[in-house]
């Protein structure tokens, strides 16, 4: 079995060993380089997060500008309305429509519904179940409108006909703004019929009476006399295609 090596054989063997060392080292260095090449993805992630923060700040700034400009528009409208009767009539209609679509803040009687993520104690309920989902909020908002709500907001975000409530990863976006638990849903309308609306919808009824208590999601309704719902701050225009279809 054992081979006795001559000195010439020894030389060839040494070179053979060296060659394979070469191949292995080559691959090793290539791999090491590759792995350090993968790392930038994480750096990229941090960069993306800070970019998101930056853009959110920028958006807040622009929203303020929009508010200011809207104020100016209102003032100009008032000025022109005082001079012409026809303009005055148009302005009245415009104000009505604005209120209808949610471009004005509303104060009035209503209810305040609070939804809170369950506290996970590591029991039978999984974390995924224990949080408030976007679908829960959608159901709730629909229930409130069913009860005749004139205006609804979630954590200060006005719900309009173009609003969306959707989840992206662990957060919920309302009007493209990130919100988190506790979710305070305010609605203006007759408090009694608003609450009736919540229990009228069968799925929502099941959620409120059985599912939420079971999982431990906090649910409370308060009737209030002075609920203030802010105006919608986003853009209300539909996309061009939609407008064309509507025409």
């Amino acid at each position: 079995m054992t081979k006795v090596s001559t000195s010439k054989n020894r030389k060839i063997e040494a070179i053979l060993l060296g060659t394979f060392v070469f191949i292995s080292m080559f691959l090793l260095v290539l791999l090491a380089k590759n792995i350090s090449g993968i790392r930038p993805i994480r750096q990229n992630k941090d960069a993306l997060i800070s970019r998101i923060r930056e853009l959110e700040q920028e958006r807040a700034k622009y929203k303020k500008t929009i508010e200011e400009l809207n104020k100016q528009i209102g003032e100009l409208e008032r000025k022109t309305a005082s001079s012409d009767r026809r303009v005055k009539e148009l302005k009245r209609q415009l104000d009505l429509l604005r209120e209808e679509v949610g471009m004005t803040a509303i104060i009035g009687k209503g209810v305040e519904v609070t939804l809170k993520d369950a506290e996970v104690s590591g029991g039978l309920i999984e974390e995924e179940q224990a949080v408030v989902h976007d679908s829960d909020l959608r159901l709730l908002v629909n229930g409130l409108f069913l009860g005749g709500a004139r205006a609804v907001s979630i954590n200060g975000e006005r719900i309009t006909s173009v609003s969306s409530i959707r989840c992206v990863g662990p957060t919920i976006l309302v009007n493209s703004k990130r919100i988190s638990s506790p979710f305070v849903v305010k609605a203006i309308g007759d408090p009694e019929s608003l609450i009736d609306g919540l229990y009228e919808e069968p799925t929502l009824n099941y959620y409120i009476t059985q599912l939420f208590p079971e999982i431990g999601i906090g649910f409370s309704v308060k009737k209030k006399d002075d609920i203030r719902i802010p105006a919608y701050k986003g853009n209300l225009s539909f996309s061009k295609n939609l407008v064309r279809v509507a025409k």
Binding site: A14, L17, G18, S24, M25, F26, L27, L30, A32, K33
Partner: peptide
């Protein structure tokens, strides 16, 4: 001889690995 050969293998391998950009 053997040590020379291994040293040469390591050096050449590392150098080639550093300069070749093969992903």
């Amino acid at each position: 001889m053997i040590w020379m050969s291994i040293l040469a293998g390591v050096t050449a391998g590392v150098l080639l690995g550093v300069f070749v950009t093969l992903e």
